[in-house]
Computed example of a mutant assay.
Amino acid sequence: MTIDGPRIDQRKIEEILRIGSERDFDKREKRVRSSFFDTVRRALKHVPFMEDVVASYYCAIDADTPASTRGILIAALAYFVLPVDIIPDMLLGIGFTDDIAVLLTAFNAVRGNIRPEHYRRARETLDEL
């Protein structure tokens, strides 16, 4: 997958999305829960599929979501909330490029597990933001 601007290697994306240990998952989930909506506010103008991103968040925190799906989504969302990653988010115009690549890959891998209620909550949340 490539997108305009800086490119992120597919192997790097796979490394980022690696589920890891339960301890890794817990650490990532804590980071996501504490920073997700602040990052969404900053990224709204830069990520064209924000409804999918927010629906992915609700899918990831849903106890009924399969563990492997939760692991992939939490890994992607943890990368999304990091302010300094491969391409720092504060770089205007290109800062979220790597985040978009990681999020799209994760979203495409687990799309079938993101249910209508996750999208409903995402739309409600985005309307409030």
Rank of each mutant, 00 (worst) to 15 (best):
R111Y: 12
E14Y: 03
A75F: 08
R11I: 04
P48F: 14
L91C: 04
D52Q: 09
I100E: 13
D4A: 00
K30P: 00
K45Y: 13
V47P: 01
K30R: 04
D127E: 14
F25M: 01
R33Y: 03
A109M: 15
L91W: 11
K12F: 04
L126Y: 01
R111H: 05
A101P: 00
E117K: 12
T97H: 03
E29Q: 02
P83I: 11
D26A: 09
L91I: 15
D98T: 10
R33E: 03
R33F: 01
T39L: 01
V40C: 04
I61K: 11
T97F: 03
E14C: 04
A122M: 10
P6V: 10
I72E: 13
M50D: 07
D64N: 14
A63C: 04
V53D: 12
A78Y: 05
S35D: 12
K30E: 13
E51D: 15
R33I: 08
L82Q: 15
F36Q: 04
L92I: 05
I74A: 07
L73S: 02
A101Q: 15
P48E: 15
D52C: 01
R111D: 11
S56W: 01
R33M: 09
R18P: 00
L17C: 05
S56A: 12
T105V: 09
M90C: 10
G95T: 11
Y57D: 08
T2P: 00
R23C: 01
S68M: 14
I114S: 10
D127F: 03
L44R: 12
E128K: 12
I19N: 00
H118D: 13
S35R: 11
R42L: 12
L129T: 05
R31D: 05
T2R: 06
A60Y: 02
G20F: 04
E22T: 07
A63Y: 02
F37S: 10
T2Q: 09
I8P: 00
L73P: 00
A109C: 11
D62W: 01
L82I: 00
D52F: 04
L126M: 01
T125F: 04
S68R: 12
K12Q: 14
T105S: 14
R41N: 13
V84G: 02
G5T: 10
Y119E: 09
L82T: 06
I8S: 00
M90V: 11
T39F: 01
D99V: 05
V47H: 06
M50S: 08
A78W: 08
M1A: 06
A76P: 02
F96M: 14
L44S: 12
I72R: 10
C59Q: 10
A109R: 15
D127N: 02
F25D: 03
V110W: 13
L104Y: 13
D62I: 03
R28M: 01
A43N: 12
E15Q: 15
L82P: 00
M90K: 09
D98H: 14
R111E: 15
F36N: 07
D38G: 06
R31E: 15
S34R: 05
F36K: 04
I74F: 08
D38I: 08
H118N: 14
A67Y: 06
E51F: 01
L77V: 03
D98F: 02
R41F: 05
M50A: 08
G93N: 08
R115Q: 12
V54S: 09
T2Y: 11
M1I: 01
R31L: 11
I8K: 05
N108I: 13
D64A: 14
T97W: 09
E14L: 14
